[in-house]
Write a protein that binds this DNA or RNA. Sequence first.
DNA 1: AGATTGATAAGG
DNA 2: CTTATCAATCTT
Length: 168
Amino acid sequence: MRLTREYFKQDALFLAEDLLGKLLCRKINGKVLKFRITETECYLGKGDSASHAGKKKTERNKIMFKQGGYAYVYLCYGIHYMFNIVSGQKNTAQGVLVRGVENFDGPGKLTKALKIDKSFNGADLVKSKEIWLENDGIKFSFKRAKRVGIEYAKKEDREKLWRFIAIK
DNA sequence: AGATTGATAAGG
DNA sequence: CTTATCAATCTT
């Protein structure tokens, strides 16, 4: 079953956990590929110094201020595309970073495998025929960990256990 | 541990 | 315009 707008409008903290085991679907050259999500991180906008949207709205992060269900894709370190799922209500600026799927562990690797690039920034995951998410009823158990790659953030934000990793 | 890489944000 | 910075990865 395809995930709905109502699903994506839930809190990012809940979604980051619940998205583990869901299927990330991508249509390439007429073929549909499905990858099971194995690792996520949660980013809240307001007061989260690790989030792009933690301080203020900019041209790049404005997608995160939309209601849940949109894709936020951006280039990091000039090399790697990151795929995020905007979540929560409008203007809450929450998002879930998809860090890994089955067989492609790592945020830069999964976007490369799925051929996700900047043109998907702002894509509607509820309506798009190119990229969407599905729930087939499988739910993984998981463990929590500290987020990575955010050394620039405040100490209290660095130590939050907002990274979710599926256990095989 | 170091090189890489280029869009983006902030400042003059 | 210029500069610094970065939700990472690959190679030593």
